[in-house]
Design a protein around this nucleic acid. Structure first.
Lengths: 251, 251
DNA sequence: CGTTAATTTGAGACCATTCAATTTCGGTGG
DNA sequence: CCACCGAAATTGAATGGTCTCAAATTAACG
């Protein structure tokens, strides 16, 4: 019955945003949820749906996307374990975008009502939750810039930097080697390019000695170079200690 | 001393998100602020700054932007009167993007501490405030799609639809005629295009009988056509009544 | 009415796309 | 362990949308 160990990473993650009391921690660990496994490319949430539950990614990867009139689609964000993939939809009530699994993955589905209850009764948790949505929004802003104003090499390099940076934070890489969950087609949908051009751009990045990428494994050979090409500045991720202090507010 | 009438539009706006008590309304109207006028293209907030005050747009237009390594810039959102232009930066504490005036405009600068105090003591206001940031995030997501996957005609048509739609909501248009605050160069920076191509695309939209646009005046001649070309679906603005009800939460 | 900003036009180059075909890879069953 | 399969990655060549650079025209404003 007690699966609360699954939610420990969430406690750790949100503790970085603000101080959580023992009561807060327990309230998080006591969240009701059901574990559900999804196979590759499964829909976790569909655009237009009413939100009844909110998904926390336990393992694997997921992404948010929107489809447009002519059939094309745009990937809006990539999500890694310990992240809520659906907070915005749950808080707004109706999903304005879809969420899909990248590979096989496990999700803890928390009833929306429990999320709302935490929001309304636990100030510290609320602050962490809000901060999470604000950081998400900041990442969206950076993605607007990425697909709007950078050329293909920069776009892809930037996305790789972001993903590596975030994976590192949850201990998801060793010696510059990361699990890379996207196919080239999905990478194309995330950067607003075509699969063919994405392939050629990746080859350029490899030839420049910046990365090694085969299958699901990404190795960053030249971190500074990749950062440079990708015009990457992690300020927008709001994960520097000084930023986190400011989040909690007096000032 | 009492300039509180300036904040009435904010009360009206946020009342649409949730029920505000008389106490809430008064708390909003009693917010301390200083009025400040900005001339064209003035910086209201600079990327990297610590946030000390939060700007509410009283008149005129403003936009958020980021500059990238090669000197290019991307406009991330456009703001119209009654909107906070800086909530995200204030809530996160450090500005990850800049805010600039479009034309001459007036801003009510509210101390960040007062915003934080409302957030921490007024549940209904907090909910409205949070909702505002969530809707902002939804708009960012749509912009990622817009610059990432739509061609130039769609991009521009979509942006025009969004702006017209939002302006209509605050009573800012008559008979399909709106004040259009962007130069073609700025429109280019918002859509990820070049000024030259923006100009040609606008001509195409005119030739197709969709819009009239000269100077600061936009007239939508064929609303359905523009909507079609722009692949515009207003769900992401989360302003339908049923959505607003869901926001308040029991469920 | 002069001066600067904004819009418009032209032509050539280039980045990215499209369409197709081929090769490699990962997994599965015989 | 190998043959097979579909998915993913790669290559080629031609097309096209958008960009660049430059100049001309028009509109805005003091």
């Amino acid at each position: 019955m007690n699966y609360s160990q699954h939610l420990l990473p969430l406690v750790r993650r949100w503790s970085a945003y603000t101080d959580l009391s023992d009561g807060d921690r327990n309230a998080l660990l006591d969240l009701p949820y059901t574990r559900k496994s999804f196979s590759k490319d499964a829909y976790i949430v569909r655009e237009g749906q009413l939100s009844r539950e909110c998904g926390l990614l336990l393992s694997g990867f997921a992404y948010r996307q929107k489809v447009i009139g002519n059939g094309g689609r745009q990937i809006i964000s990539i999500h890694i374990p310990t992240e809520f993939i659906d907070l915005q939809n749950s808080l707004l009530g109706v999903a304005d975008h879809s969420v899909q699994s990248l590979g096989p993955c496990e999700v803890a589905l928390v009833p929306r009502s429990a999320i709302i209850a935490l929001r309304d009764t636990r100030p510290a948790i609320r602050l962490a939750m809000w901060t999470e949505t604000l950081i998400d929004a900041s990442i969206f802003r950076e993605w607007v810039v990425n697909v709007g104003r950078r050329d293909s090499k920069s776009r892809i390099a930037h996305l790789l930097c972001e993903l590596a940076f975030r994976l590192e934070r949850i201990g998801g890489g060793k010696n510059g080697v990361f699990e890379f969950p996207l196919t080239q087609e999905q990478l194309a949908d995330a950067t607003g390019l075509t699969p063919v051009h994405t392939n050629r751009t990746l080859q350029a990045l490899r030839k420049n000695g910046l990365i090694e990428l085969n299958g699901r494994s990404l190795k960053v050979l030249d971190w500074e170079g990749l950062r440079e090409v990708g015009d990457f500045d992690e300020l927008y991720l709001h994960q520097q200690p000084e930023t986190n202090q400011r989040v909690s507010g007096t000032g």
